[in-house]
Nucleic acid binder design. Structure first.
Lengths: 150, 150
DNA sequence: TAAAAAAACCACTAAAAACCACTTTTTCCC
DNA sequence: GGGAAAAAGTGGTTTTTAGTGGTTTTTTTA
């Protein structure tokens, strides 16, 4: 099982192509043979999520099975399923980000790719830096988090 | 069984015709030979629902069987059954959206087609973008959803 | 029977995907 | 530490396919 760590600055070209860093590429190659799913993030941060296909196939049925007479569940389904784009790395190790996802996450030229264990996050560099500067809410932590000792 | 994912920007022409994106077309071809049912969405979002015929035939009897002394059930029946339009893709892979459905969902030129697993949703682009910007209600999440780890 | 509207058919334009070549950076060896 | 070779990243070109618009034929209605 893959375990993505660290952050990488990368550039997207005019066609919306972006080169996955070589180290990440290696991990993706063995996790999923380069077959990935790119989708929108559901919370208020407008970034994208990049899953190796096997990991996505664990998550997808859980989301599809949510009771969709509920408003919050419908929202999650529309965002995650409704933006999911399966794709493969091209010969040069690049992916093409679909226009709808590009505009959802406000991606321009300069991006950040952030390792998050089983998945990666893709941010516009500007938004990533702004997010880093945001103040943290310490209230409303789940109990598992309060018990941590870093 | 088909599994629709991702979002596509499409244009409707002056005659009310819209070209189904090639990838979706392929999925529809194998799911139902291009035979689909288009109908209204029942919740507060004014969009249309596009079902492959076999999927529709699973859903239809369930809706017909609802106990309709209940007001919400009657509403669901009138909207879903009363707007259902069976149709086939034309030679160029397009469908013709009936005028009543066009006005129900406020469809003009620019539309979004959103994959939602067993069905697709068809939105006016304007309304889809407005919906994306709506604030998220975190209350009232079903327990299955609270337990998710994306 | 004629006219209008709708459906099917056909052709052209534009965009996307695959392919290929070059430049820059990093690493390894001398 | 410097140079060479390999790998990574970048950009452009070509080819194919998808999308769009118009035209003709058929059907329906007045």
């Amino acid at each position: 099982m893959s375990n993505f760590l660290g952050s990488h600055a990368i550039n997207m070209d005019a066609k919306g192509r972006l080169a996955i860093p070589a180290k990440v590429r290696e991990e993706l190659a063995q996790a999923c043979g380069g077959r990935i799913v790119l989708t929108a993030n559901a919370d208020e941060e407008r970034c994208l999520l990049l899953y190796p296909e096997p990991e996505w196939e664990i998550l997808r049925p859980k989301i599809e099975a949510l009771p969709n007479m509920n408003k919050a569940a419908r929202r999650l389904q529309r965002l995650i399923l409704g933006n999911a784009a399966p794709m493969e790395l091209d010969g040069a190790g690049r992916i093409l980000v679909p226009p709808t996802l590009r505009s959802y996450a406000h991606l321009e030229k300069k991006l950040m790719l952030i390792g998050q264990g089983k998945k990666l996050e893709l941010w516009s560099e500007e938004r990533w830096l702004a997010w880093l500067d945001e103040s943290t809410d310490d209230d409303d932590m789940p109990p598992e988090m309060e018990a941590l000792s870093l």
